[in-house]
Amino acid sequence: MSLSTLYAMTGVALFSLGFHALLVQRHLLRKVLALNVLGSATFLLLVGMARRGGDTPDPVPHAMVLTGIVVAVSATALALSLARRLKAAQGLVRLPEDMPE
């Protein structure tokens, strides 16, 4: 197994972890973190596979990852602000369907 495959497989593992957490965790902060893990997993796959060329990595995936990071940061900021608004307006830290019965 080459180094880039190792990175890519780590990306797959992280993707599954993030997906799982998004589905089963209920606190909104954890759900947002899960989405961040999903994003990082994808970036890892892109950067890992870009290294297959050896010493000169493909710059296009690097640029994609940089763009992706900025988008991920923005989306996270929006999600956290909305979570704060939800907490301030209705005292919720979970979605209504995830409330303990």
Partner: peptide, 25 residues
């Protein structure tokens, strides 16, 4: 609408990230 927007945001981000992972592949 706030809770609905939050759910929508989570769903929408998951959808986009699934797309991105597919693009990476």
């Amino acid at each position: 609408s706030l809770a609905a927007a939050m759910r929508y945001l989570l769903v929408s981000m998951l959808g986009s990230l699934a797309w991105l992972f597919g693009v990476a592949l």
